[in-house]
Nucleic acid binder design. Sequence first.
DNA 1: TCTGGGGTCCTAGGACCC
DNA 2: TCTGGGGTCCTAGGACCC
Length: 393
Amino acid sequence: MYYLHIDCNSYFASCEVATRPELAGRPVVVANENEHGGGVILALNAEAKNVGLKRGIPLFKVRDTLKTNDVAICKVDHKKYRRISNKIMDEVVAQGIVLDFVQYSIDEFFGTLPVDNPDIIRRCVHEIKQLISDSTGIPTGCGCSQTYTLAKCATWFAKHYDGYDGVCVLPPDKRERALSLLAISDVWGIGRQTRRKLEQMGVATALDFTHLPQNRVEQTFNTATLHTYLELCGTPTIQLESHSRRKSIMQSHTFAVMIENRDELSSEVARFAARCAESLRKQGSVCRSVTVFVNTNRYRDDLAQYHNDATAKLNPPTADSPTLIRTAERLLTQLYRPGYQYKRAGVVLTGISGDAGQQLDLFTSENDERRRRLMDVTDKLNRRFGDETVTFG
DNA sequence: TCTGGGGTCCTAGGACCC
DNA sequence: TCTGGGGTCCTAGGACCC
């Protein structure tokens, strides 16, 4: 059996090009641009990379480059990207070659192929890649190997060596050779901190890491890093479950113009809470706690800084918008300090559990039932006529 | 002028229990 | 001098991911 990993190339930018043919061949960036020209580059295609642009740069720093190279700036459209991602999921599942297919993130998928012959695997994966390209227009890099982590390494090679044509199958006898060419920082699960520690131990490549004695890894690192180590050595360790239910739900925003006024901030927080409540109901869950946070602008050392958060428990757990909005507003009242310029705020729901009906049974009253129906109707209206067609005053 | 928005899991330590 | 020996649950913060 082989593990399969599929990674969409420059996903947000590819979605824009796929749905807007007039963009083909042009440098394209996707940015969360706001009405004041703020925002940062979230994704960019190869043409945009070629003119020196990079992910994460604020647009205002590269205005000249954008203009000189006639770069198309697309506004980020998460709904579209979610829709295309679901389509990829459906197409691959319907094709039936891949087993245990999971949507790991909006642009990455894992699965297994019940075959051991690398040549057959390669042909299958090329077919899958072609299927995705034909049905959605999205280019992908695909990797196959003995574990999830090694499959991700294979994808790295598929994307970085043109000869693979986007598909790299890494059989056991090629493992060591491949890992010797892979920098430790390019391994899935090795972040900045762990990389620093490993480098101090003389580890530069993924192969160096696998040559450490296992007990040394156990003593020095946490279990997540140990799992990465075992997987690189060829032992499947990581379990992926397709978690359709989120365990936390957050809505936050960096304001284009800083907010000082309490009522303005409060109305933003209320909107975040309402949107969180909607996602919560969409997945059929209730939550046990609400957190609100506020931040000033960390880039402005000329301004007084303040950041804080506060959490409230909800008993019984709920998905009722008015309750969540009122709770969030009460928390904001605790947090708010006059005289600061607020740049960012957000609402987080945690303690999420499934099946609202079951949780409420014991104390459900007629009033609760009416509230549930009200939520149901507002959700339906907003789905049918667009977000925030109906909001809470 | 302008600087993203989400998630997950693990671990240490505190509060509390017997 | 020395101050038991288990547990559970919760939370904050770190690290990592896209």
